[in-house]
Design a protein around this nucleic acid. Sequence first.
DNA 1: TTGAATACCTAATTTGTTTATGTATTTAAT
DNA 2: ATTAAATACATAAACAAATTAGGTATTCAA
Lengths: 110, 110
Amino acid sequence: MNKSNLYKGCLEPIIMQLLSDKGRMYGYEITQKVKDLTKNELQITEGALYPLLHRLEASGILEVEMENIGNRVRKYYSLTKSGKKQTKIALTEIQAFLDTLQTLVNPKLA
Amino acid sequence: MNKSNLYKGCLEPIIMQLLSDKGRMYGYEITQKVKDLTKNELQITEGALYPLLHRLEASGILEVEMENIGNRVRKYYSLTKSGKKQTKIALTEIQAFLDTLQTLVNPKLA
DNA sequence: TTGAATACCTAATTTGTTTATGTATTTAAT
DNA sequence: ATTAAATACATAAACAAATTAGGTATTCAA
């Protein structure tokens, strides 16, 4: 993540962390998991999620396995080897970003 | 801040917090202060800052005092009464947002 | 005297969202 | 049996908040 980006791109590390934790997930599952984990605070919209998953796949961070569930197709995403490396970096960066924001927004806790 | 906004609008509460803390500041001073406080991690661009200050002024959150420093004009911004109320709300919201992100990105610390 | 720092500003562009819309299957309720 | 809600994928248009790039002008330091 570009450090000068004050805000954008939090969705990407969130998804990378989840996949790092769960091994593999499909899109809809991710939306539900985030909704669950955040007690409905964060609702990932599909319009944000699916294009992002496609971008991460195209850039070699994620790989996809199709699975047939009844007559329905489910697309399971997981981190590639390269994706795992980049996840470590991304998580370190977003953690630094959150720490920075935290001290700015609540300097008493600094 | 819209809770479903995964990212946007962190600059706004940062500025509100700073003004809440310092009483009054001018634009350039804000950029330098943030740069300082974050050890060069966050560089607020003027293209983001000035339009935001103008928006906050237009919406009655900030008020402005012009001051002549030599031949130069400095615009000091401070929170209005209404702005102070909204700052409390904004800071509570961004804190919740940061906590949420924190647990997602590092569930071990949850 | 010249470049860097101070101090303001805006327009065009980029980017990552939301909103809206679509398809189709499966499950639960009436 | 029928219908609504949930599951599961997807994309296009619109939007908002940033970046980039440009501008003006003063002050300070080399």
